[in-house]
Nucleic acid binder design. Sequence first.
DNA 1: GACACGTGGGA
DNA 2: TTCCCAAGTGT
Length: 357
Amino acid sequence: MRVESEPMKIAEDLLAHYGVHARRLPWRVPPGSNEAADPYRVWLSEVMLQQTTVAAVAPYFARFTDRWPTVADLAAAADGDVMAAWAGLGYYARARNLLACARAVARDHGGVFPDTEDALRALPGVGAYTAAAVAAIAFRRRAVVVDANVERVVARLFAIATPLPAARTEIRAAAHRITPDARAGDFAQAMMDLGATICTSRSPACGICPLRQDCAAFRTADPAAFPAKAAKKARPHRLGHAWWIERDDGRIWLIRRPDKGMLGGMRALPSSDWSVTAPPAAPPFPALWTALADPVTHVFTHFSLDLMVHVARVEGDCLPPGEGEWWPLDRLDEAGLPTLFRRAADAAMKENIQDAW
DNA sequence: GACACGTGGGA
DNA sequence: TTCCCAAGTGT
């Protein structure tokens, strides 16, 4: 005979806890509030929060909503402005899809977010998770919201031993069982709060968990062992070159990367391909090139990179090959460089200061 | 299902 | 230092 709490009891216990302990977040309406959540803000926050921490998102969310208060404002924004505003947050396909989604809402939905999970799911950059989250949180629909937090909490509640990702089907079915018909949005946010603050990946605080009496993993020797996960692959290493071209009027040459691939759509220094073996350091044009002593090291999700930075100072009549723009050094912050190239720029400028001395 | 796709913080 | 991971989506 199984010892398992009633599905409804889990939701009741969790929502009671959430009513008292809900985190106050800029995009969140407090539990029990009569105020309705703004679908635009809910959607924007959900996209920003994909694979990204609350701490990292908060300042970006503030800047975006200040500059583009409505989905119509965002839909009317220039591509480059949005990409630059996203710079540093990572996963830049999100920014491209964000704009595409805002414009689809403006063009196909009269500037109003659709209020069903299916219609939301059809929008660019809105997958199963985000569609369910927006439907539940902004439109108070009964949707089963499953993110990594929910997966972890559910895997523990029911001590699901199947390793991820194979356990997804089983976890989703269990999440469906415990999701209440009413307040599914609060329930989802409560699950995520629990996963972020108590039922954490490494050392869950079971002693203060409102669900410990409902939790099968709590009754095992090692609750943190759930969910089991498949082994990860080793991270390969790559090498590349980047070119810092500084003109005598205090500008540097920036290009825009193609939409597809790494850092797609972002401003960048000209650079070589990033290969497993060092590509030949073939500069974009002949000049007096100086390589920085140390490469810029950067770790991406699926590989790490050593980027050699080569510096050249050129005359005002120099025109590097290909598309690009001369960008004033004193406004480099506004260029919206992704972190890799921001670090390369910092290294190049530091080197130049040493030259001047 | 597998893989590409960023970044910064915590243990 | 190194590894893991954080409100996933698209292909």
